[in-house]
């Protein structure tokens, strides 16, 4: 579903990403771990088509992102680290607006169902987003992904700054989407969350993917050790 082949990105001779190869299948959650500047966000931006690769290619659902960017955006949903919505519109109106941009049609009741499914409490649906917490905005983001019927979910440190309860709720939502066959690529610093929900884990350092393994093959303690070892080496 999501594939990066020999992917490299350079900025003025500085290698931000070096020969990255990853593949995320439908129903997989791939967690990218790594220190700041390791190239996690660069990878996600390349999948979004916000930046262009220096070498190699990225594809979503079999479409090359650099050539069919508009097509690939139909299948993906993106939740940035700090998902921002229109503050003067309500959560429901924001959902309607963004889903409308994605050219999907739903009845009002269906929009409300998406928000409920994403775990946003009913009384918040018609409140203006200016009063929302980060967790609530992210739930709207998940509702957008649900309504857009996204096959791919790109997440850039979505749980940073969330309280443990909100973080837990978010993880549960990701697992629900996983069961629906969504392929998820998530950049995160949260080793605990990664071990809890990921099917695959990769560790990045200085633009290279240095470790990649199945989540079930490693314990949380070993993962932490491996992470620290990789980062410090």
């Amino acid at each position: 579903m999501l594939e990066a082949t020999n992917l490299s990105k350079e900025y003025n001779n500085f290698s931000a990403l070096n020969n990255l190869n990853i593949k995320v299948e439908a129903g997989d959650i791939y967690c990218l771990l790594g220190a700041n500047g390791a190239g996690k966000s660069t990878t996600i931006n390349l999948f979004l088509g916000f930046i262009e690769a220096t070498k190699g290619s990225v594809s979503i659902n079999g479409f090359d992102v650099s050539k069919k960017n508009m097509e690939t955006k139909k299948y993906l949903s993106y939740i940035p680290e700090n998902l921002m919505l229109y503050p003067t519109l309500t959560g429901l109106e924001n959902l309607e607006y963004f889903v409308g941009l994605a050219n999907k049609k739903y009845a009002k009741a269906e929009f409300i169902n998406f928000l409920t499914e994403a775990g946003l409490q009913t009384n918040a649906h018609t409140k203006r987003v200016s009063a929302y917490s980060k967790g609530m905005r992210q739930k709207v983001g998940i509702a957008i992904a649900l309504a857009k019927d996204a096959k791919v979910l790109l997440l850039d440190e979505p749980t940073s700054g969330l309280d443990p309860r909100a973080s837990n709720e978010f993880s549960t939502l990701l697992l629900t989407l996983k069961d629906k066959g969504v392929a998820t690529l998530m950049a995160t610093h949260d080793i605990f969350r990664a071990k809890q929900i990921a099917t695959h884990i990769g560790i990045m350092k200085e633009g290279r993917l240095v470790e990649s393994f199945k989540s079930e093959d490693i314990s949380l303690k070993d993962l932490e050790g491996l992470y620290l070892e990789t980062i410090d080496s």
Binding site: L48, E71, K73, Y78, M84, P87, F98
Partner: peptide, 18 residues
């Protein structure tokens, strides 16, 4: 500036047309 551009750009729209 309010941070909605990233979400907007992830939608299948041409930003100039928008």
């Amino acid at each position: 500036e309010q941070g909605t551009l990233r979400l907007l750009l992830s939608m299948p729209i041409n930003i100039k047309t928008w």
